[in-house]
Design a protein around this nucleic acid. Sequence first.
RNA 1: GGUGCCGUGGUGUAGCGGUCUAACAUACCCGCCUGUCACGUGGGUGAUCGGGGGUUCGAAUCCCCUCGGCACCGCCA
Length: 620
Amino acid sequence: MATSKPRSKRADHILASPRATALRDCTCGELRAADAGREVSLCGWVNRQRDHGKIVFIDLRDRYGITQIVIDPDRLPKDSETLTKASEIRSEFTLLVRGVVAKRDPQTVNLNMETGEIEIIATDITLFNASKPVPFPITDTITSDESVRMKYRYLDIRRSAMRSRLELRHKIELYIRTYLDTRDFIEVETPILTKSTPEGARDYLVPSRVWPGQFYALPQAPQQFKQLLMVAGLDRYFQIARCFRDEDLRGDRQPEFTQLDLEMSFAAESDVMRLIETLLIEITQKFGNKKIQQIPFPHISFSDAMEQYGIDRPDLRFDLRLRSLGDLAQLGDFKVFKDAVNSGGMVKGLRLPGQAAMTRKEIDEVTEFARNLGAKGLISYAIQQDGAVKSPLTKAMTEPDLRKITDHMQGLPGDMIFFVADSEKVCNDVLWRLRIHMGEKLGLINHDEAAFCWVVDFPMFEIIEENGAQRYHAVHNPFSGVKHGHEQLFETDPLAAQARQYDIVMDGFEIGGGSIRIHKSETQKRVFQLLGLNDEQITEQFGHMLEAFDFGAPPHGGIALGIDRLVMLLAGAENIREVMAFPKNANAQDMLMRAPSLVDDVQLDELSLKVKLPQENSKK
RNA sequence: GGUGCCGUGGUGUAGCGGUCUAACAUACCCGCCUGUCACGUGGGUGAUCGGGGGUUCGAAUCCCCUCGGCACCGCCA
């Protein structure tokens, strides 16, 4: 296209701008001083209109920028109505402006604008559409109530902050596709209408018209399909896939969300991890404005993460660590500690360097915070400059005992330690949140840093309580492979068996997880049995997988990355909704479309469905 | 299902027991203004304080219920 000769200035410009359309020659973000003299037409929304009585300025905005339009009576025909028209224009009107690009006088150049050296001397304005006063200003500085933003999401997205987050998301997804394509991964679409599976989250169900009383389920992840694609010999698959889970929402959880799902054959942990680590490094360096704390990403075992951070997704942006007191909790005669240990629990502490001078009031606030998280209380332990300890413990313990505790906790003069005495679960639950809370409060978190880590050595199973009975539950998913030599533990001590699982954590968020899978039907069957499925259930629910494995399934493994969470973190957004065009509110409703909604009885009849509302609290 | 925070003109906030017949900014409407760029300037419309009940001589302000939004727990990888 660069070879064809422009016939005129105007034609030249049409060729120059790839975004020219039948209605416009260029966008509101691209004209510069060099374009002076050109006759152009621009389309966009009125960002602001300034009426000076005789002369009128309009800042015209589109996705690409803002350009100032000048409506000057001295440069219009005498009988032109353009000035009158311009004076009646308001914010968010949609216009077509024809005019001539002019260099601004040096005094009137606006260095805050990318197009600030020029302006368009309008010759004609066409109004595509007027706008009612908008429910909130289309600016980035003013935040409006989120319910209003959601109801008028199409206006919210006009704001450059929203728009640039969606652009960022697009760029990242495009980068991922290219990255994987060059490594021979192919993107394969898998069904949205699929089969309900027992493990995992609650399914979204879709009734079948053709098969009355039967249901499809929306996929929680394309897990089984991607494994079947490996059996099919596709070798390397990926998909930027929509996933659905009918569970309650959080800031980082939506009922439908997007995963980068991938799987590769003849691969070990190191292959998947290297692939993803390189991808994450490139994406962060290219699109994020955060420095990666450590390359290569550190690996932390599940048990170390739980011991030192109280959670399997540690936020490594700051270096506070938890430490359990062990046998030292038995020293002296401190009832709270002894009771916790005697009832099978433990004592665990969080050391806050240099915080010994916290006031009574501050300590009470922290204690209240811990109580709200389920702790019975918090035992403070302040180490004075002279090494003496100020703590409720002093009444029940000797000075040598306290010294042992100080040493064990690696306490230094001036430090404050908070102890929780409870079950291991409560200790960890309270302390990991307290750790984050204090990290934030004390300004220890470096927000310009991205801290990635791999969490490995997960157990295969955990015990969960279901209807009063205890049973095994897969920590990751029932397809995760078991570490070499750990199969025997299935028969002796299943909880000790470790999975070939790896989670990728960024800034304390789990942004992905995967595993090398089971590819032997016998092993897969044994896992299902341990998870409490009988032979009939195994055949009914997973027979197709077992059968597939028996047709020469290759060793394979993969990972799924939470795209929404990743983009959220790279964009520095507060929650996942900020990086989704049309998210749902905390009650899983679409505030713009007003979904979910009632449907016609005719539709229900076709599906052989009858609605039975819960008594009393049926929501209209 | 539970806990917490929030709910004042279109929007963002102030007021937190009487002086509130509710203040400020912005938006909106009517004027004036030829160089602004959050234009300026004069005037004007607009909320009974999410809804209901209660306490009190008196409630936007205190209490209870309820609705809505958000956060968190349960739930969920």
